[in-house]
């Protein structure tokens, strides 16, 4: 049923650190690689070697330029996948019941066996987190690697999403955001994690950690105290300093 659960036992999700993401697309491709041969239909690519290649990805990295009122422009790499919203509009719009949010862990999934490929859920999602696969005709989205995180065929330490496991810079964190004592919740609290488009009232589970303040050296650093301004003065200092060693 596409009604949203009253409450979820856990709120599993991702925390993405925009201060650390270098924009390498590792998470994008590893997600594609894992998901093309696991959950549901493969993620297809059309005109793969031709003039207009296009394919299904569950996670994509944008690059933005942010220009402060005063100071130097910054670049922010911005990975985006499903945010597993608490108030997921993509779920309630679904006419077939294919889209659902799990009460046990809050993961939003599409049951492809039920999906008729109407695309309405993708329209309902503010974040572009759903893509209709061109060849399979069913809706694809981030599964939070539900087939990894509980998978007893994987070693315990690997029961995390593929994108988190692969991220070279450690910019992606996975955990229970419903538990205020979890590492991810603490991280969000420490770093003032934010929701994307709060005005859409989707209550995303995934949080984004904003970049730390940048280009502050000029304000922060104290000038060096000079011991010499020319070679002779330096020599005198040198002699003294060597003596003190």
């Amino acid at each position: 049923m596409t009604a949203l659960p009253q409450s979820c036992e856990k709120k599993l999700g991702l925390v993405i650190d925009l201060d650390t993401c270098v924009g390498c697309h590792a998470c994008v491709v590893n997600c594609k690689e894992w998901n093309t041969s696991n959950y549901g239909a493969p993620l297809s690519d059309t005109d793969a070697y031709g003039a207009d290649p296009s394919g299904t990805f569950l996670n994509r990295v944008h690059t933005y330029e942010v220009t402060p009122d005063v100071g130097v422009p910054q670049i922010v790499h911005f990975p985006k996948s499903c945010l597993h919203c608490d108030d997921a509009p993509c779920v309630t719009v679904c006419p077939t019941g294919a889209s659902f949010k799990r009460s046990e862990d809050g993961i939003v999934l599409v049951n492809e066996d039920d999906c008729m490929g109407c695309g309405l859920c993708a329209w309902a999602c503010p974040y572009g987190a759903r893509e209709l696969d061109a060849l399979a005709g069913v809706m694809k989205k981030c599964t939070l690697c539900v087939d990894r995180i509980y998978n007893e065929n994987l070693p315990e330490e690997d029961r995390i999403p593929a994108c988190v496991r692969t991220c070279p810079s450690g910019a992606r964190h996975f955990g229970d955001l419903g538990d205020p004592d979890s590492d991810v919740s603490k991280l969000v609290a420490d770093r003032s994690g934010v929701d994307l488009m709060p005005e859409m009232q989707t209550k995303p589970v995934n949080k984004y950690l904003p970049p730390r303040p940048k280009d502050t050296l000029l304000q922060d650093s104290a000038a060096l105290e000079l011991v010499a301004t020319e070679p002779k003065g330096f020599l005198a200092w040198l002699d003294k300093a060597l003596g003190a060693l």
């Binding site: 296009s54 994307l196 904003p210």
Partner: peptide
């Protein structure tokens, strides 16, 4: 608001996540 980066300044796309088109772009 979409990026949560407004606190830093005004935001502009520098590079899309993919060179070509995709479902989201053609549809929405």
């Amino acid at each position: 608001t979409a990026t949560g980066l407004g606190a830093i300044g005004s935001v502009r796309q520098l590079e899309a996540p993919h060179s070509g088109t995709n479902y989201l772009l053609t549809e929405m």
